[in-house]
Design a protein around this nucleic acid. Sequence first.
DNA 1: CATACTCTAGACCGGTTGGTATAATTTTGG
DNA 2: CCAAAATTATACCAACCGGTCTAGAGTATG
Lengths: 202, 202
Amino acid sequence: MKEKHNTREVILQTATRLFQRQGYNGTGLNQIIEESGAPKGSIYYHFPNGKEEIAIEAISMMRKLVLEGAEKDLTGKDSAAEAFEYYLNNVAAIFDLKSCIDGLSIGLIASETAFTHEQLRYSCEMVFKDLQSQHAQILMQYGFDREQAEELGITITAMIEGACILSITYQDGNPLRRIAKQLSLLLKRSQETQGEKQNGNE
Amino acid sequence: MKEKHNTREVILQTATRLFQRQGYNGTGLNQIIEESGAPKGSIYYHFPNGKEEIAIEAISMMRKLVLEGAEKDLTGKDSAAEAFEYYLNNVAAIFDLKSCIDGLSIGLIASETAFTHEQLRYSCEMVFKDLQSQHAQILMQYGFDREQAEELGITITAMIEGACILSITYQDGNPLRRIAKQLSLLLKRSQETQGEKQNGNE
DNA sequence: CATACTCTAGACCGGTTGGTATAATTTTGG
DNA sequence: CCAAAATTATACCAACCGGTCTAGAGTATG
């Protein structure tokens, strides 16, 4: 069975893309079927619990895409400030191309389902927590202490999410680029202040 | 006609609330009708162009609510840092109550319609720009120079939007409170750096 | 080859969607 | 009071929604 699971993967990839672009409520199964080329029977064969099950797996795929994309851009730089600025500028470049926005943001599906689909809300919460952790880990690798890294982790997660929404709305990478600079400054200053605090203790 | 325009206002208020809570695609006209008590005929009488027209007016109402709510909290404080921290803590308190989230955020309707409803996207872009301007104006009132105020304006807009999404997803005001503190620090440091730059020039 | 299992394919279903049409009711102003 | 205008009320519509069902095609194995 050379193509085993291929239909399932195609459905999932199409759904992931469409859910990120239009949201859960704005994406119908028929659109997923058309754009993936998968037969309707296969949707329920592979995802017996229906649309919600597809969405939960799509959120999982978004998580993987976002974490991997960020990891790739955030490591191997001279400082946290440089790393996060580089990452956000890469995300901005994707918006400029107006191309596929997979793996950039989960804010849409998170906020639209928060009051109406508890399982999806919970899945998104877990992804956001993973993103916060990733950011905090990266900051610690660049020398931040744990407490500050954690507070900055959640702040960075929010900033990136908010910046993506602005760029999506403006259909332009410019908001992300401007916010990348401010995030860079924020990180530089935070690290300087941490340095002073450590010197002060000695 | 003592109640002139009352039906129209009730429809609009209900729609504004529901669009903010569930988004545009997640809110059907029948739900607006039920929850507002308005007759279906009146929907098309008052909003002849249908759902999109309601949404455009709802976005306008959201704009008013957000701008007024922020104005009320952001003025009359000792510093920008204190003002924005106070504002975000008030927003957080609303999330803690799990009550009506009107006038807190437009990120959901903005992102879900960005690729599919150009008029709504445009309306949301204008609201975000107004929010940025408001934030920049407030910062200038507290002593920031124009250029820095504008860069911080867009950054604050993104941070608030992102923080609201996290709080919506976590169903908890805590993300907002934590980010309020980081925003306060960011503003303090930005103002100190601006002070040094001015001293350096003299 | 036969059999069992996996997977596809697409018809079908009841319910919901946004919108239309028009009669009935209410309001307004002379 | 009455006519005209404003507004309500509700039946109706085609299209779309997520989900069910079942025949049949494809694959693996003995």
